[in-house]
Design a protein around this nucleic acid. Structure first.
Length: 256
DNA sequence: ATGGTGGTCTTACCA
């Protein structure tokens, strides 16, 4: 069995011990991390290598930053894609065995209609084209990360309150469908799931305690991986820890 | 009640 996970850690500097603890307890084989907020020179390579992991990362100062931690060797690393000249480090595509993995930190977008929203939509369009191309080259493709999109109303604690808001707006959901039209499936919805399961809760207004969350962290799988997918779950536990990220990890188990 | 918290070479910006 192979276990893949995605976690927006909101600063790997602050969350390193939590990530190491969770790697032990979850028995995850491959973890995609978003919002490391570390330049490459500061990435805690040794902490992972000491535990037997392979590590790749693409970081920048203060914001963004993505990484992949793997029990198996990593090759064919790509951090930039065609037609997107972007200094922001949000993309990390890697090959691990016969698996192609794309780890994404999708822009937040701030507010519908603003410059950052336009950047988000443009970014998603370019990334979708790249994923389409990758899906042609790799039968076993997984796309994971913080998508900053809640695909459906059932992924939102209070859909009425969130109508047309950022993370939920029609154009963002349209971009989500464009992304999935590249023959990918939302692994979470391959299985019956309890209601009101979310992956992110605002730090403000006791969002987690009141379960006022959104499901915006996802693992998408190509058909060849869907066939082998045994489970897709959200692990709420790290969000209960002291000084948590505002996101909690999501994972899939794949049959060999 | 129209805010709130948390992270970052902090006093502004991002989420």
């Amino acid at each position: 069995m192979l276990k893949l996970a995605s976690w927006n850690v909101n600063s790997l500097k602050v969350r390193l011990e939590q990530v190491l603890t969770w790697l032990d307890s979850s028995e995850v084989d491959i973890l995609g991390i978003q919002e490391t907020k570390l330049v490459d020179e500061q990435f805690p390579v040794d902490a992972f290598v000491e535990k037997g992991y392979h590590v790749v990362y693409a970081g920048q100062k203060t914001y963004n930053g993505v990484a992949v931690i793997s029990r198996f060797p990593i090759s064919d690393v790509q951090t930039d894609i065609p037609d997107l000249d972007d200094p922001q480090r949000r993309i990390l595509a890697v090959t691990i065995g016969d698996l192609r993995l794309i780890n994404l930190y999708v822009p937040n977008g701030a507010e519908v209609g603003c410059d950052k929203y336009e950047y988000k939509l443009n970014w998603l369009a370019k990334v979708s084209a790249y994923i389409e191309q990758q899906s042609r080259e790799h039968a076993k493709l997984a796309v994971m990360g913080d998508f900053n999109i809640a695909p459906e109303d059932r992924d939102v604690h209070d859909p009425a309150e969130w109508v047309d808001c950022i993370l939920v707006s029609p154009l963002e959901r349209q971009a989500w469908h464009t992304l999935l039209s590249t023959r990918l499936k939302d692994s979470f919805r391959l299985f019956p799931q309890e209601d009101n399961q979310f992956s992110w809760w605002d730090y403000r207004a006791a969002g987690f305690r009141r379960n006022r969350g959104l499901r915006i962290d996802h693992i998408l799988l190509s058909d060849a991986l869907v066939q082998n997918c045994l489970s897709s779950q959200i692990d709420r536990e790290p969000r209960t820890w002291e000084r948590p990220s505002d996101h909690t990890p999501v994972w899939v188990a794949l049959k060999n």
